[in-house]
């Protein structure tokens, strides 16, 4: 399963089959940056999933004799200041990053959709929900995440929750806008004229028509979450220091940047590849799924 599919199917089980239809899938497969993004994401996902098999040694196994080894055939990506194998650590770090990203995406899919749908459909709730989200969005995102993470104590779970709190208002806003747009369409009135209730209309008629912008948004949230998780970990507010996290690896490598630059560069590249992949994927999805962009092409 690719990260794209994980991303989509969790929010709407039959989304790929039902909504994108054959033509859209074909357009995506011909979209160059989408395909590059897809391959990058696939690559990272495969490494993450197969980390236990691929990594030659335990990512936390220290070997004082082989400290500061540059990348070589023995140590594919070199070793760090404690002689830990960087390839193993990066591979396991991919697991952690993707898991945290996925957690943030899932929380966004659930609560962003819930809040956005309520605000967009029940206009009475709109004022209060949107003012709350304004309040959250007024903070710079990383600062807010740092604040929440610091208040709750550092752990991977904290990182997920704090990043979810940061991004849920944004997701909710996007969903609210598309819910408001779809609500105006005639088939919603037609469903009402057929005797359908509000929840039925929201679930069956409105939300399935709001999936395209949601999927695009979630792919970007995935990317930002991975990036911000690295920032939190770098600052010591994310994963536990013993966990192989990309942010922690960069932070450790910083002290040795002159002697062993690969300690910083390797996890940095890992972050760059993953975030780039997700962003390209998101751009491609937006080009193909978002009708407004399509018109400009």
């Amino acid at each position: 399963m690719t990260s794209l599919e994980m991303n989509d199917t969790r929010s709407e089980p039959s989304f790929l089959r039902r909504f994108m239809g054959g033509r859209r899938v074909r357009r995506l497969l011909r979209h160059r940056s989408f395909m590059i993004g897809l391959w990058l994401c696939l690559f990272v996902t495969v490494i993450a999933v197969l980390a236990p098999v691929l990594s030659p040694v335990d990512p936390n196994k220290m070997a004082i004799r082989s400290r500061f080894q540059p990348p070589s055939l023995d140590f594919l990506l070199g070793t760090d200041n404690l002689g830990r194998d960087l390839f193993s650590r990066v591979a396991w770090g991919a697991r952690l990053s993707l898991a945290i990203g996925l957690g943030v995406v899932l929380l966004n899919a659930v609560f962003g959709v819930l809040l956005g749908a309520l605000a967009g459909y029940f206009r009475r709730l709109d004022g209060i929900l949107m003012r709350l989200s304004d309040a959250l969005m007024a903070f710079p995102s990383v600062l807010l995440a740092i604040g929440i993470a610091a208040a709750m104590g550092a752990s991977a779970m904290t990182a997920v929750i704090s990043l979810a709190v940061v991004y849920i208002p944004r997701t909710a806003r996007i969903l609210r806008a598309s819910v408001m747009q779809v609500t105006e369409l005639e088939f919603v009135n037609a469903a009402r004229a057929a005797g359908a209730g509000d929840l039925h209309i929201l679930r069956r008629h409105i939300l399935p028509n709001c999936m395209a912008p949601l999927v695009v948004q979630l792919s970007f949230v995935f990317a930002y979450a991975i990036l911000s998780e690295a920032v939190l970990s770098f600052l010591g507010l994310g994963a536990a220091p013993t966990d192989p996290s990309w942010g922690i690896m960069i932070s450790e490598g910083r002290s040795y940047i002159r002697e062993a630059p690969w300690m910083t560069v390797i996890p940095g590249m890992a972050i760059a590849i993953t975030v780039l992949g997700l962003n390209l994927l998101g751009d491609g999805l937006r080009d193909v799924l978002d009708p407004r962009v399509k018109m400009e092409h």
Binding site: R18, F19, L185, E186, F187, N189, A190, A191, A193, R204, H205, P208, N209
Partner: peptide, 15 residues
């Protein structure tokens, strides 16, 4: 029962 004017938009495109 009710029938609307615009047949193009009174059916849900994803159902």
């Amino acid at each position: 029962g009710m029938i609307f004017q615009e047949p193009m938009s009174s059916l849900n495109p994803v159902l």
